[in-house]
Design a protein around this nucleic acid. Structure first.
Lengths: 337, 337
DNA sequence: CTGAAAGCGCTTACAG
DNA sequence: CTGAAAGCGCTTACAG
């Protein structure tokens, strides 16, 4: 804690000029004599002058601050999106006001008011899943961009991972590795992510003229479920040569059980996960080939789009962002490719 | 996006009163006639009036906003601390400005300036590890509280988990379960967390008049290292009946390899982890007994302390926050206790 | 009970 | 090139 903060009038009097001149000098205006400018700058430095952003914001109507409204920061998916956004903003002069509504609509309204009264220039709403969520954008005086979880309202701007495309890409990779008998284990079907990834699988198989082996097995997004599903699948469909899993947790469980049952991964069964959650995907034996949703990029893109929207140029609709397949040993043993 | 925002003078003229009266009515002052107040409130509602927090802040000198400066939000530890803080603030009227410096001192200074120019009322600095970090508090016009990673300056206020105490508690639990031949596998010694947890182990063993079995094994904080350490330890010290691991990642690897080598956990070897990172601790077989550092509580406490500091009552020093032992099957098989 | 006036810290036309 | 004045949206003594 230090002494009282200097204001621009302190700087002006120390430099022996008017407040107006001090302001111009500090803001790099041209119409100030060089010598005067230097005196002002020296005074500002001596007083450790920091302009008051509140006063500026009051004048300009812009705060250079955006709100980040999340439903579930604890969630694994919100965090990277948030970081990507924070990055895009931090690089400029933007600051981020973070609010976590924890899935509670009342709390969300409450935070929304708090953000608006602080006059944020815009808002990013980060979903906890890719399930569409109610719009908050109606009658809001600032632009809003949705990230990860899209808005239900097609007039809003949303950025989501292209789960269908990524799943198809993953399955095409399995096909390229020569696999033909592919099964699918995933999460609960009330997740759009689970449904989209299954659809990607279907598209890729249909295009190759193949049938999925067995039914899609749905269960919790957990390692335990992955193990259990593996037990079932190895029993009921012993001839499978690949499994596409809806998450790394599921895949980690699958790989573990396959190993215990003496099935070699990838030689006997290739396994693909989803999420590239590294604490799992790089630590299983073998490490997992998996889809990385590039969530930081998604967050950054959403933030950049928000800038554009603040400047009046928004592109409504749901924008699907490309994902990336990270190939590791669970589909492609070392030395083989 | 909607129409222009209403100001208090819009409200005043719609209600047919002066700005001063409108302000008093809106702020619940007593000295306004009930009928007048109602007219003002009605006008405010009709115009969806939201007071401009910038203008208020300029007057009062308080923004009801705090800065949260993190070094590594990606890190697993910053997040819960951040959430706990966000919670404590959100419950009141505080808002949180989030900045991630990603371990870069330059960027940290930059963010610091941005936060100060926005006139935050206070600052929480969240560390990425429990290693002490340079102070940012010198000559700052607002109070600062450090969470998880303490400041190097003892005059600052820091909140950290009590790793020494928690490790001792974990080891005492093993002793209570009748274990006497306890080994230790942990992370890199340049982490204070690794050193503190080892010290806790030492204290507990010394008090019980026991010796640690074998040397402390240090390696990366990874599951892979846990497996490797298990191979070594089961070879070199086959008589161990318990292992205290410095993290859940290490413990997960240890349990896995013990299982593969035919050692029963906990019957032959009891295992304790650290962190209660649930994706690991509840999914290993058996699930891990582990230390939960109560990081959300830590964050909340830091935030509450920041409030106190803003009101002028800070308690300097490093405050050690209690952790909690979560007992699962890796030390205490079902039905046995 | 109500309102005119001053002021928070800054920027921006507008005169000089 | 420099400075007096108005104003951003609000609150708070202070008169009436």
């Amino acid at each position: 804690m230090a002494t009282k903060r200097a204001t621009i009038s302190d700087v002006a009097s120390l430099a022996g000029v008017s407040i107006a001149t001090a302001s111009k000098a500090l803001n790099g205006r041209q119409d100030v004599r060089a010598a005067t400018r230097e005196r002002v700058l020296a005074a500002a430095a001596e007083l450790s002058f920091q302009p008051n952003a509140l006063a500026r914001g009051l004048l300009s109507g812009q705060t250079r601050t955006v709100g980040l409204l999340t439903s579930d920061s604890v969630g694994r998916f919100g965090i990277p999106v948030l970081l990507g956004a924070e990055n895009a903003f931090g690089a400029g002069e933007m600051a981020v006001l973070l609010c976590d509504a924890r899935g509670d609509a009342i709390r969300e309204q409450y935070h929304l008011r708090a953000l608006l009264s602080r006059r944020v220039d815009g808002l990013i709403v980060v979903g906890e899943s890719t399930n569409p969520r109610p719009s908050v954008s109606k009658d809001l005086p600032v632009p809003v961009v949705y990230a990860y979880g899209p808005s239900e309202d097609p007039d809003d701007v949303s950025f989501v991972p292209d789960d269908v495309g990524a799943a198809a890409m993953a399955v095409n990779h399995l096909l390229a590795m020569g696999r033909r008998r592919i099964a699918h284990v995933t999460g609960p079907t009330h997740y759009k992510a689970a449904r989209d990834r299954e659809e990607g699988l279907r598209l890729a198989l249909a295009e190759a003229g193949l049938e999925q082996v067995g039914q899609t097995l749905s269960g919790p997004w957990s390692q335990r479920w992955g193990r259990h599903a593996a037990e079932m699948l190895l029993m009921s469909e012993p001839e499978i040569d690949a499994v596409f899993c809806g998450s790394d947790q599921v895949a980690a469980g699958f790989v573990e059980t396959a190993r215990e049952r003496g099935r070699r991964v990838p030689d006997d069964i290739a396994v693909v996960g989803y999420d590239n959650w590294e604490v799992l995907s790089t630590e299983t034996r073998p490490a997992l080939t998996t889809v990385d949703m590039n969530l930081e990029l998604l967050g950054r893109t959403a933030a950049q789009h928000l800038f554009a929207a603040i400047d009046g140029k928004a592109t409504p609709g749901v924008h699907k962002m490309p994902c990336q397949l990270v190939i590791r040993d669970s589909t492609s043993p070392p030395g083989v490719s």
